[in-house]
Design a binder for these strands. Structure first.
Lengths: 203, 203
DNA sequence: ATATAGTTTAACTATTTGGTTAACAAAATT
DNA sequence: AATTTTGTTAACCAAATAGTTAAACTATAT
């Protein structure tokens, strides 16, 4: 079957490219290495994706389309503010275990190529903070939480959840732990981080 | 004067290499570009630093030796716990303005090369968390702060301070702000972050 | 069976890139 | 002043790398 075969190869390439690009970045990745990992001839990469740049963009968009729903769990979910902070924090660890290099990859490539943001912004499902802002100001008005800018709270939530993974090699060294102990720390954060945040803002 | 001329060239190379490596990473940097920026012949790079790898290591160590004292402001400073959280948070923003690419560079290259940590650990001035751990358990025993693992608190402090810079392109897009507004947010964090942390842990 | 359209590969090309060499220039040493 | 040492450059080299081509192969439709 033509269709299936094509889709398989195309998907195999994307899977292989994801792994290589996410571990080594655009500059560090080699087309040959991607071809090897996908077990195909290098020319096929170009047959399906034309160039390294286009293959990279396919990988990048695919990566972001996995990350966006995670972020939307904080920004565009109907549940109660405290509840969603708890849920997001718990979920995020599992998400990163499934896609260890993904958040770092997205952030890193955005740093090297900030104009890339434009391409993402225009796409559907790009997270919007508006709903979250309303929810925060509601909670403040109702006297549930102390006054805080929604943006600051959002940045805090994201920072506390994402950075421990991105900074893992550095943090592991600083707290003087091996991988195993550090993983326990991360595991504890599933609940610790949410309580840390809620403690800070609740009245 | 031989000595002065040599030191100038060597320093010029290091300055140029810092800029290029920190913006483009090890894989993305080009020796020719470094030479151009330092306004010298490419062969001189090899004359002074032998190889790209060694030049990179010189830059990396130099970068880390700037970052380490910052981290030590949290870990090995004599002042009161709340006081040092406030001071660190305020200082850190100024530090990053002076060295915008530095923290991201260090973290990024550690991620691509985790065994690099060993090289740093053995060096003098590598921050140690021991003193901070004592300080935290003292504060807990004295009923000043709620029980919390020192490692978790440390990770929180670092995350809240470093991530908003590393994730800047992503966060800017998510909170839907331009550079100017986002800078104001960062400026506010000089005090906001410390209060956020202290609010969470104080009794 | 055979033409057709899509898929895959081996071999090749052009360019980039880290690194070297040999000659030259400038200081330092004698 | 002559010689040695150090600093600098232009030209070069070999390996790596993204991308191309043309031919072979495969499956399907006619």
């Amino acid at each position: 079957m033509d269709k299936i075969k094509t889709e398989n190869t195309e998907t195999e390439i994307l899977i292989a490219a994801k792994e290589i690009f996410q571990q080594k970045g655009m500059a560090g990745a080699r087309m040959q290495e991607i071809a090897d990992k996908a077990k195909i001839n290098k020319a096929l990469l170009h047959y399906y994706y034309r160039s390294k740049q286009l293959l990279f963009e396919a990988v990048f968009k695919s990566a972001f389309s996995l990350l966006a729903p995670q972020l939307n769990k904080v920004l565009n979910d109907d549940s109660d503010l405290f509840e969603k902070i708890r849920k997001f924090t718990e979920n995020y660890v599992s998400f990163v275990i499934k896609h260890p290099y993904l958040p770092n990859f997205v952030i890193q490539e955005l740093n090297k190529n900030p104009e890339f943001v434009q391409k993402l912004r225009s796409e559907k499902n790009f997270p919007s903070i508006e709903k979250f802002k309303l929810q925060v100001s509601d909670a403040i008005n109702q006297g549930i939480i102390k006054p805080i800018e929604a943006e600051q709270l959002f940045i805090n939530i994201i920072s506390l959840n994402i950075f421990p993974f991105i900074g893992e090699p550095l943090l592991m060294a600083l707290v003087n732990m091996d991988k195993e102990s550090y993983n326990k720390i991360l595991e504890n954060r599933k609940t610790e981080v949410a309580e840390f945040i809620i403690n800070s803002i609740k009245i």
